[in-house]
Amino acid sequence: MSHSENSHGSSAPPLKMGLAIPDSKLCMWLFLGTEIMFFTAFIGSYIVLRLGSPGWPSDPKDTHILVLAGGINTFVLILSSYLVVLSHEAMIEKNYRKAWNFMAGTMALAFLFLGIKSVEYYGKFDHDIVPGHIAENDEQALQKLVREFDSSRISLLNAIVPGDDDVNKKTSKLSTGPGEGEAAFDPAMVAAYQKLDKSYGELRDAVRAEKLSLHVGVDHEINPEIVSRLEAMRSDEQIAPYFHAHDPHPMVYGNVFASTYFLMTGFHAIHVVIGMILFGIVLLQGSKLDGNWIDFVENSGLYWHFVDLVWIFLFPLLYIVDFS
């Protein structure tokens, strides 16, 4: 049957191929299908890894996981999802000003979510809970401590002796004095360097000779010798700005914990940013927002609900569940 015969021969509406939903919505759902597979691969692998890693760090004191921050962020995302729904409803009711306001509220909550997340990330970086940086047993913790003393020593040395010379050359300059035309070294800084260098040397030698244990006593407390060494450096106002050693704290499976934590929350945060870009496009329309944007708002909302969905599972899995 030709197209003209169909058009003229019947009063029925013209046939439409495909599903009775907008193409853009179908595309968004197909995209969300791939996104579900993307995140379930991470989450599924995380669950399996965690089940297979006895001793996985779950104490918030070790992991610096802030359950309250995660809970507040859950509330923030749920509220933002609700506002997106209301924005879409307002679009259908042709109340575009109201829709814009709800969208602006969603955007503000997305910023709040990222703000809280960055506070959490700051805590992780501050305690060096970063993949590849975490000592998983006492021996690794002591070696890390020695490395951190060494890098702090070099930082202080570079502050005293500026320039591109290597460490050995700079160290010898400390005893021979500055070169011609170079500024004199600050004696207080030099004394501080010698103090740090001495402490570093003693610590390194004790660790190499296996004469220093990280934990002592029945309570398994950190060796007081290490604590006093750290306090001596941190309380010295010349050394403190250059001293970056952390309290030694071995964490079994800490690195895979940090990897999975940053992988999942990081990709989720990227999705939040993409959602904010979508909302930003709507908000930029200002008073020009009209009925042509209904599908865009609906699809952005679908995407945002998916971001919310992912967090709904990440919150209990990362912040609450303890399989040990």
């Binding site: 791939t34 579900i36 089940l51 297979g52």
Partner: peptide, 19 residues
């Protein structure tokens, strides 16, 4: 299909990694 993959991947990894 997404549901099948979501369930299938952990199940496939479970015997060798988790138990």
């Amino acid at each position: 299909p997404t549901f099948i993959l979501a369930v299938g991947l952990p199940l496939a990894l479970f015997p060798d990694v988790a138990v």
